[in-house]
């Protein structure tokens, strides 16, 4: 960690229980989020991914542990959580759940309105957010007329209009078709390049390969926190198992080939690299 500025967000020993006697949804999580990084969070359904999203976005306060925003601990009250909600935007799985207004531009304005910003500032932000998500042309359209991918980008625009330092995507790509998914991921990459921290919660391991860091949850516990490559290598070599998740396609192909007598040890696990490695291995053997 750099000495000068504190990280954007830190979780210290965060535990969340929805019922006092029940199992924790999150157990003693330590996590740091810095500006401009892309953290992919992996885990099966029920692993605590969505609870983590809610803690990061300031929608629930942890039962135990601390959330620290730019060096200052966040309070557990509604008012205490307010700065966190301002700093972290959240995009959910189902775009339908996030749309409140009757036109695209009114919907984007909802967040700034809630912060009681003056109308001309709202206008400026709405325009900027629509431009960043490629929705300018659809400004006065009814959200019901949008495609699934456009609705999801509208949700991103709504979050961007608040000008957050981080964006959390809770399985936001899971209901989209391939094209819309690619488009949303491109918007996410642009926001990362603009200096925002991106937290991408997913169970598509392929999408996690672009992450600067990988965080793996299993039944509320942190199983891995580090760069993606060593994690995928450990998966391919069978040193690690992921409950509920399948390794990325490239890793599985490498495993399948090794089991069939073609030993492949690619440096990366994208499909092309694994296929090339198979040819190289065969020509050597």
């Amino acid at each position: 960690m750099t000495g000068g500025t504190p990280p954007l967000l830190r979780l210290e020993g965060v535990t969340v229980r929805y019922r006092p006697d029940g199992p924790p949804a999150l157990a003693e999580i330590d996590l740091t989020l810095r500006a401009g990084e892309w953290v992919s969070v992996l885990g099966a359904n029920g692993s605590g991914k969505s609870t983590l999203a809610r803690v990061l976005a300031g929608l629930i306060a942890p039962t135990a542990g601390a959330v620290i925003l730019r060096g200052a601990p966040v309070g557990a009250t509604e008012t205490g959580l307010w700065p966190l909600r301002q700093a972290v935007g959240l995009v959910l799985q189902n775009p339908e759940d996030q749309i409140v207004a009757a036109t695209v531009e009114d919907d984007v304005a909802f967040g700034p309105e809630n912060r009681a910003l003056p109308p001309d500032e709202i206008e400026r932000r709405v325009t900027a957010a629509l431009r960043r998500t490629g929705l300018e042309a659809l400004r006065s359209v009814e959200p019901a007329r949008l495609s699934g991918g456009e609705k999801q980008r509208l949700a991103v625009a709504g979050a961007l209009a608040v000008e957050p330092a981080a964006l959390v995507f809770d399985e936001a790509t899971s209901m989209l078709d391939a094209e819309a998914r690619a488009r949303l991921l491109a918007v996410m990459r642009e926001e990362q390049a603009a200096g925002r921290a991106i937290v991408h919660i997913t169970h598509e391991l392929e999408e996690a390969e672009v992450a600067s860091r990988l965080v793996v949850l299993d039944r509320g516990r942190l199983r891995y926190d580090g760069p993606p490559a060593p994690f995928f290598t450990a998966l391919a070599e069978g040193r690690l198992a992921l409950p509920g998740l399948l390794p990325p396609f490239g890793v599985r192909l490498a495993q399948d080939l090794t089991a069939r007598g073609i030993a492949v040890r690619p440096a990366r696990f994208d499909p092309e690299a694994v296929v090339e490695a198979a040819w190289t291995s065969a020509s050597k053997g």
Partner: peptide, 10 residues
């Protein structure tokens, strides 16, 4: 989910 989204949007 909708209540959650509203809160998240401030």
């Amino acid at each position: 989910a909708m209540a959650l989204a509203l809160e998240a949007r401030g």
